[in-house]
Design a protein around this nucleic acid. Structure first.
Lengths: 204, 204
DNA sequence: TGTACATCAGTGAACGCGCGTTCACTGATGTAC
DNA sequence: TGTACATCAGTGAACGCGCGTTCACTGATGTAC
């Protein structure tokens, strides 16, 4: 990737970011299906056709948002893990980082972990980032679990997968409103689950 | 509720069912956001305004579908549990019943356990059925877990809640495509999870 | 059983709206000499 | 450094589309006497 040096290139890069930011704001109000190029353009004071200089179609913009969301979630999780820390502390840190990111970006979370968007077919581009988050997480969980790469027994791996599912299951239930009225407040339940799952995968 | 006896009343009840059935078919193709009264009417060979004799608005139709979905899921789960059975068998039956219903009605599942529909505010009417499913499930899980009502220790209850979250977390991951490429096929993983969770809550 | 009136299901036209995308254009920015 | 040409960002009008909802209407079904 060449460094952007002309004014044009700088402007283009900046506007691309602004469009995505505005689209994220839009997303929060109307959801992925309701995301409209015209609304984004309107909010930016541009004419809708101008957006086509930046994204060839609505779906391409959506794809960019999805990739960004995966990356952001991945980084949040990665940043929470400082190797060398106490394993149980690390485990807690990772779990809470995932939950906090989701709570701070509920609509982007829904974009990547919610129900599929009808009519939208995920292009190849989104698969890599998706896998990266999953891998980052399981890798970290694995490392935290004390087992060294390449020799994780199947049983442990299975338990890690269950923990992984549990993490996102809990977050989704909280964000999508399934806990309302039964598990309230959710903070203590989440903390408790974190501990239980740490025990479950055998963290010392 | 009076029994329907006039031809009018019978016709009305039937058409109401037909409208909902067609709406469910529509749902499968375009999702909750894309559900359109006009498309439903078109498919039924009616004029769109005629639907207003049956549902006062698009949202009311959606609400009806949501309530139906909760009820269907609830019944599927309830039917799977035959009291007096071996606890572990019962546990398995309930878990697989939930998963099977979800796999057979993925769009209705998404409707009730997926990301919230933007712009749609769940009326009171949907809260009761939602709670009923949760209650049915936890009640059955509790009974299966061998503890008799009213004296469930907090720790056990917590573990049951975790299992409940795990069940739907796993189903959602499977249906929403998060397992693609990593946990494939899902059958064996689900079976394994079922057992692990049975152990986890202490089923003999 | 037969008639007079009330109820209600379904029609068809219309309202006002927002959408994604295309296209010929203008004017500013960048490049080669 | 200055000029001639190429590139590209943004404009504005237009296309064709589907949507939810309202309304005055017609004709069939139901009810009271």
């Amino acid at each position: 990737m060449a460094v952007t040096h002309t004014a044009r290139e700088r402007a283009r890069a900046e506007l691309t970011l602004e469009i995505k930011d505005e689209a994220r704001r839009e997303l929060a109000q109307v959801g992925a299906n309701g995301l409209s190029l015209r609304a984004v353009a309107r909010e930016l004071g541009m004419v809708s056709s101008a957006l086509y200089r930046y994204f060839p179609s609505r779906d391409h913009l959506l794809t960019a948002l999805i990739i960004d969301a995966y990356d952001a979630m991945g980084h949040a999780v990665q940043a929470a893990h400082s190797p060398g820390d106490d394993p149980r502390r690390s485990w807690q840190a990772v779990w809470h980082a995932a939950r906090n990111w989701a709570r701070q970006h509920p609509h982007e979370y829904a974009l990547i972990y919610g129900s599929p968007i009808p009519g939208y077919r995920a292009p190849q581009d989104t698969i890599a980032p998706a896998g990266r988050v999953a891998l980052t997480l399981t890798e970290q969980l694995t490392r935290v679990a004390g087992t060294l790469e390449a020799e994780v027994p199947v049983a442990t791996l299975n338990r890690l997968l269950i923990a992984w599912t549990q993490l996102f299951g809990t977050i989704s239930f909280e964000l999508f409103g399934q806990f309302v009225g039964s598990v309230d407040p959710t903070d203590s339940f989440f903390a408790c689950t974190t501990q239980q799952m740490a025990d479950f995968v055998g963290i010392t």
